[in-house]
């Protein structure tokens, strides 16, 4: 656990979805899917918490519930001591500029009808509507340079950029309001490996420079290990393990984490064969 005062603390977060049965009559009770079952954690300023787990285990749902994009069925979220869940829309808007988000699909997260400049400027225009046009443009150019894009590309449209560049636009958009925390929802899963490294390193550089806290969601353990201070392993909406990154990876306590780590392929045929044999043995014994 970090000794610093947490910037974000989540207590007993629960999210449920109602699922209508097929051919259900209107008065029949819908099935309840418990996507997140009471998750608690703290995030310190400047720290990165990696959230891993197989697909459908509630990683993204948890992140969206924290910033109230989807309703939660219980739990508290303290952002610098204030409970987000009890805020009204107006107060929440003030918080939204401090917590920004980066999305999985770089192209889909950018409106195809807007130029890169307009996309990056949107949060600034939302939270500071009185900023002058020149000021906005200056900020946008500054941020584009910061994330490694040329300011000359300000008038280009998303489809004219590569996947990695689109993700950089997404990062610039997240940074323009000077947030304190960024939620990264599988930001590199849709990119190819060489670009993944660039984007992850960019995020780490920015974090160091700006003192950001990151909530880094991914299913790729190697990426998470690289960027995170601590790792939280989610298993069907529950915390399977939460601890220092190297501890979790090198000395996993829960069987679920062990299985997750064992599932990672090794780029060496001999070691890979050994790994598969070990997995089979593990499955046979289970």
């Amino acid at each position: 656990m970090s000794t610093k005062e947490p910037i974000l603390s989540v207590r007993d977060m629960r999210v449920e979805f109602k699922i209508k049965k097929q051919n259900a009559l209107p008065w029949q009770k819908p099935d309840i899917l418990r996507a997140v079952k009471g998750v608690s954690f703290d995030l310190a300023a400047g720290e990165t918490l990696g959230i891993v787990g197989e697909s459908g285990c509630g990683k993204s749902t948890l992140a969206r519930a924290i910033i109230r994009m989807i309703p939660s069925q219980g739990g508290e979220v303290f952002w610098q001591g204030r409970d987000l869940m009890k805020m009204n829309e107006k107060e929440l808007l003030g918080i939204r500029k401090e917590i920004q988000m980066i999305f999985q699909d770089p192209l889909a997260s950018l409106n195809p009808r807007l130029t890169a400049g307009q996309i990056i400027a949107e949060p600034l225009k939302t939270h500071y509507p009185n900023t002058s046009k020149d000021e906005v443009k200056k900020r946008v150019r500054e941020l584009m340079e910061k994330v490694g894009l040329s300011g000359r590309m300000i008038n280009r449209y998303p489809h004219e950029f590569s996947g990695g560049q689109c993700q950089r636009i997404g990062i610039a958009r997240a940074l323009i309001t000077n947030p304190k925390m960024i939620i990264c929802d599988e930001p590199v899963s849709a990119l190819d490996v060489s670009v993944q490294a660039q984007v992850v390193n960019l995020l780490m550089d920015l974090q160091k420079e700006l003192g950001l806290s990151l909530l880094f969601i991914a299913h790729d353990l190697s990426v998470v290990k690289h960027i995170s201070n601590r790792i939280m392993v989610l298993e069907f909406g529950d915390i399977a393990e939460l601890g220092e990154a190297h501890e979790v990876i090198n000395n996993p306590q829960s069987p679920y984490t062990r299985e997750l780590i064992n599932a990672v392929p090794i780029p060496d045929p001999i070691a890979e064969r050994k790994r598969i044999a070990e997995r089979r043995a593990l499955e046979a014994s289970a």
Binding site: Q100, F103, S109, E122, T126
Partner: peptide
């Protein structure tokens, strides 16, 4: 996701 991004920004 771009609509979601706009919603997340407020």
């Amino acid at each position: 996701e771009f609509v979601e991004a706009a919603m997340a920004t407020g």
